[in-house]
Amino acid sequence: MLLVKFKDEVEEILSRYPVKRSALLPLLNLAQREEGFVSELAMRDIAKVLDLTPPQVFETVTFYTMFHLKPIGKFHLQVCKSLMCALVRSDELVTWISKKLNIGPGQTTVDGNFTLSVVECLGSCGTGPMMQVNDDYYEQLTEEKVGRVLDDLARVGECSLKSGPFMFPMPLAKS
């Protein structure tokens, strides 16, 4: 059971809140990080820890778009399509990815590596077009750049093009 496996982490999370239910999102995040999605078993386990009924966990899970109730690809490509990114051609980014991976939004590659989603604003409006892949942001993407990202991910599971601590624009070096 997940909560046995991460006993210390679960206890630390519970200790942050005076009311148990507050630990729900953190525990769901934990479960999803472990399994890649939120399974029914995880929801039941979490319900038990928090003195909730499974439907109470379920209703919360389904409110938030980051939780998946079914397994998805190893890398979840989420392209922002909101206006600010759309102004700098995020729709093309979707096309580039579709072309390269042969999948449309909502689909997963046959090897189970990539799932493509089109999502709303990710808080990166000045550096579009951009996408989030699992925990990481990739910004100011071009067709070439996104190609490299996908290749690297497929090959070594990570890519150095991911954003570091955010600063935009980088200040000009004082001369």
Partner: peptide, 20 residues
């Protein structure tokens, strides 16, 4: 105090369900 009903989903697509 039964808490068996869950509003599932968000916005206009919210529906009342049980668990999963």
């Amino acid at each position: 105090d039964v808490k068996a009903l869950a509003p599932v989903g968000r916005g206009t697509l919210t529906e009342i369900k049980a668990f999963g």
